[in-house]
Design a binder for these strands. Structure first.
Lengths: 224, 224
DNA sequence: CTCCGTCAAGAGCAGTGCTCTCTTATGAGA
DNA sequence: TCTCATAAGAGAGCACTGCTCTTGACGGAG
């Protein structure tokens, strides 16, 4: 009953906060949000016990939005086109990040000062990488992926544990390559979003496309 | 004379600011620095016109420190051991980041809100990648690096322009792979520093070692 | 109808970056 | 050696921040 009003109010606060984040940047001001809402600052505390809790809510939403974008892009590709699915994931990540740079910074940039990511974020954070795991898993089941470059035991154990939750039946050699691609993907996007590519790359788009295609080939996904 | 006192004061302010950065985190308080210095807050403005300028100075210092660490590590390896030099660079980056996480966040994390990186930072920012370029350049001169995976024209142009300043005589195929390694290196380190690997990787060290060795092999640097 | 829980408002605290004015003392030139 | 411009620090003050606490109003449940 009044819980619905409460939920609406919570959503409205988050929406305004997200807008502030997009325009102003990372330093989100509770008082400014309250002003935009036509409410006094202390009223916000009825809905979020602290600024960090509001940030946590925004972080969760951002992970969800990114996960949705990746899922939608990957789901639209023919299941048998493994490299197509892989590239769809890569492009979805980059495009979501370019469209929502401050939210990307919120989740993949430097953590906010005293802020320790609550454990509830990790579940929603793994959505995107799980989708990549599905692609690799499907490709492995067709016997596509080779398993060369032997791993030293400890590294093999780490890769194996990651694989257990993401892509159980993928040989760790291929999984290790996919992990490298994931790291390179976010390395590229972070560099681009955070301005590390300024004065060095003029058109990041085609370069990104090529790098990710090279990664697909390196993993062993046939390029159709 | 007076200029020397001024330089000493400037250094002291930066040292205290760096200490605050290490303990407190990214939200650096001028007033807290002034308190630690035993001086009133407005006195800081005699040395840095604003908080952003102090941050810029710290950013420059951080880039310099990282560059020094990378140069020292790479310089200590036999010039003919290309993969050794490559791995030395990778480990130097990671270890410097782990030792100075907040300074790493300052330069490779989300840019601070209204802050636009001044152009004077880009020169000092390229130190580390230039050293990598030297390794690839030396390796290419021995005829080690092959030039397969053809690049589409626009991407080729981007890689070529990067190569002009970093490693002029390296075939763009190999340079593109080296670029991918650089992105993966910082993807890994950023994930580790920013907590993205928590609950997923227990011992990042051996995994990092393996991933970077795989990259060296992929680039074409012979592992001794 | 009464009671109680929820909500918003408002004042206030401690902290922030930054500006302005005032006073001191120090080093350089005559 | 003496004078004096200038650099440096002190302090007050402005507008802002997150957050707490108290007060008062409203509305549904008993």
């Amino acid at each position: 009953m009044r819980a619905r009003l409460r939920a609406e109010m919570t959503d409205e606060i988050k929406a305004i906060a997200r807008r502030h984040l997009a325009t102003e940047g990372a330093n989100l001001s509770l008082r400014a949000v309250a002003r935009d809402l036509g409410v006094v600052s202390s009223a916000i505390y009825r809905y979020f016990p602290s600024r960090d809790d509001l940030l946590t809510a925004l972080i969760m939403d951002a992970y969800t939005a990114l996960g949705d974008a990746v899922a939608a892009a990957e789901g639209a590709v023919d299941r048998r086109d493994f490299s197509g699915r892989f590239l769809a994931i890569c492009h979805a990540v980059r495009e979501w990040a370019l469209a929502n740079p401050h939210e990307y910074a919120l989740i993949y940039g430097s953590p906010v000062p005293g802020y320790a990511a609550p454990t509830e974020t990790v579940a929603v954070a793994t959505r995107a990488v799980t989708i990549l795991g599905g692609v690799i898993e499907d490709a492995a089941r067709t016997g596509l992926l080779r398993n060369d470059d032997p791993l030293p035991p400890v590294a093999a154990g780490e890769v194996e544990r990651i694989g257990e939750t993401i892509a159980p039946s993928v040989p760790i050699g291929a999984l290790s390559r996919a992990l490298g691609s994931w790291l390179q993907l976010f390395g590229f996007v972070s560099f681009e979003i955070f301005g590390q590519l300024n004065n060095a790359v003029e058109l990041p788009g085609p370069l990104f496309e090529h790098q990710m295609r090279a990664q697909a080939r390196y993993i062993g996904l046939p390029l159709l």
